[in-house]
Design a protein around this nucleic acid. Sequence first.
DNA 1: GGGATAACCGAACGATTGGTCAAATATCTC
DNA 2: GAGATATTTGACCAATCGTTCGGTTATCCC
Lengths: 196, 196
Amino acid sequence: MTTRPVGRPARYQPAELLAVVTAEFITRGYDATSMEDLARATGMTKSAIYHHVSGKEELLRLAVAKAVGALFAVLEEDAAITGSAVRRLEHVVRRSAEVLVEQLPYVTLLLRVRGNTQAERWALERRRAFDARLSALVQAAIDEGDVRSDLDPRLVTRLLFGMVNSVVEWYRPGGTNGKDVADALVALAFNGLRRT
Amino acid sequence: MTTRPVGRPARYQPAELLAVVTAEFITRGYDATSMEDLARATGMTKSAIYHHVSGKEELLRLAVAKAVGALFAVLEEDAAITGSAVRRLEHVVRRSAEVLVEQLPYVTLLLRVRGNTQAERWALERRRAFDARLSALVQAAIDEGDVRSDLDPRLVTRLLFGMVNSVVEWYRPGGTNGKDVADALVALAFNGLRRT
DNA sequence: GGGATAACCGAACGATTGGTCAAATATCTC
DNA sequence: GAGATATTTGACCAATCGTTCGGTTATCCC
């Protein structure tokens, strides 16, 4: 059921607009990106942008919300709920990496948030909640004896997902396949660098 | 030979000033930090700051240069030059982590640089040069047969030092010892998560 | 006390910032 | 063509930005 169009036709679909804006936020950084920059990048005027969103901060909120939604969805997947903790952990690591690659710009923005505005503080809170879920998973895998117990579980969680998240620093679409990155990540994380 | 003091005594030593400024850059982000913010944080006026540096960008340049210097110094250490490639790699990983913890604010700033200004572009160029040295080290360790050869060496380098660099995202002085972090990092990187 | 010197201050600068508003424009249905 | 509706525009605003500058303050040596 498509609603028949009324009024002047829009130059952008909401999702397309967000994609252009997010790309700009990433290359210049959120704070260094002016509404003027966004106007130039979209081909609209500043005031046209304000017709669609309440301001610069809402654009950030929309972008990071997209990333948050995609990441939390991984935790609801069947393989993240059933099976041994170590298998669930492996699944979450692999899928997080894949989501990160699929939703690269949005996750990149999420990981760069500093907490200056309301939207940024909300994003930080969601990240902490996500990290807590990961930490519980690592702890469970240690308890079940499948992950080494000689290291602090919180430290392990941070390093493990620090490695996963670092993918946003260099991954560019068109290069290595997202699945290949996830495979290398899992192999490295679980078995280490050393020749076996 | 200390030069006798002449003129009004300074409120700050250059290094102390840079520490305060860098802390501010990190909590708010470089672009979101105004000279007004820096004046408040230092207790000086904006104009007093301008007596010591040419502007905001020079403060950033000084801070990231400190990090760059400390990181490159690791590559000149004896254990980074002599011995097998895998031992040299292990040393560089461990020492990079330690330097990162010792010089936390400066390295944090270095890793957040986006390339908007001259100083930032210089920092990015130095980071690329550093990464190239690391990549060569990983390749050498693979060639000598001590590191697994089933993964793309560049990918391995990026993930490995992505994990190292991710420490800036959560490490806070007074918590875990810097050496303990480096130990966990090396253990995880070389042997992996799995119980052995 | 009087230079000399370095550090610091207050007020102001032009430029740019995120945001506003009344009017103009393009499409629909009738 | 006449409404109705959604989108877009250009001119404008107060606030803040990084920076400048003429003058003041605190210390030194003589």
